[in-house]
């Protein structure tokens, strides 16, 4: 019944716009799995992508309530169409032959690469779909010292866009 949705929106690049979106989720007890926001090429707009979970009814309400916010210019549910989603993960592991082997095994068909090596620690940079990354992190398990995820972003494929 409950499903994950990636909702992406163009926001007026005003102070307070982000807190309106975040506040809406907490005030109405909606879920936030991840939230990411940054300016677009048009400096008057920022693009915010939120991953949320809910029944069809709840997701419908979330979209309507977001749309109702005056700072939200336009909104798209990426889960409704054929879209491309990506998340970036940086993770730190202790350097050892075993971990390096694991990474090169796992990384063969992914975008994982060792980006930094300092004082016996590696920073691995990997991007992919959220679920794939979840699995990837599970396999590394206890080897991980620290991890940071960017939150999901996405674009719909083909002609469909979120632009003005």
């Amino acid at each position: 019944m409950s499903r994950q949705h990636i909702i992406s929106m163009l926001l007026e690049n005003e102070s307070g716009a982000l807190s309106r979106v975040a506040g809406l989720f907490s005030a109405r007890a909606y879920n936030i799995e991840s939230l990411t926001v940054a300016a677009t090429i048009d400096p008057s707009l920022s693009r915010l992508t939120v991953v949320t979970v809910g029944s069809d009814k709840v997701i419908e309400q979330i979209k309507k309530q977001l749309d109702k916010l005056v700072d939200v210019v336009k909104l798209i549910d990426l889960s409704e169409s054929f879209s491309l989603e990506r998340e970036l993960v940086l993770l730190k592991v202790k350097k050892s032959d075993a971990t390096e082997q694991k990474i090169s095994d796992l990384g063969a068909d992914s975008m994982a690469c060792i980006t930094d090596e300092t004082d016996g620690f590696l920073i691995i940079e990997v991007s992919g779909e959220k679920t794939w990354l979840d699995d990837f992190l599970l396999t590394l398990g206890d080897d991980i010292v620290e991890v940071v995820r960017s939150g999901v972003i996405g674009l719909s494929r083909g002609e469909r866009t979120l632009t003005l």
């Binding site: 009814k57 419908e60 309400q61 309507k64 309530q65 749309d67 109702k68």
Partner: peptide, 11 residues
């Protein structure tokens, strides 16, 4: 007048 009122409580 408010689309968010529709189906908020009752389908």
């Amino acid at each position: 007048v408010d689309p968010a009122s529709i189906a908020k409580i009752i389908e």
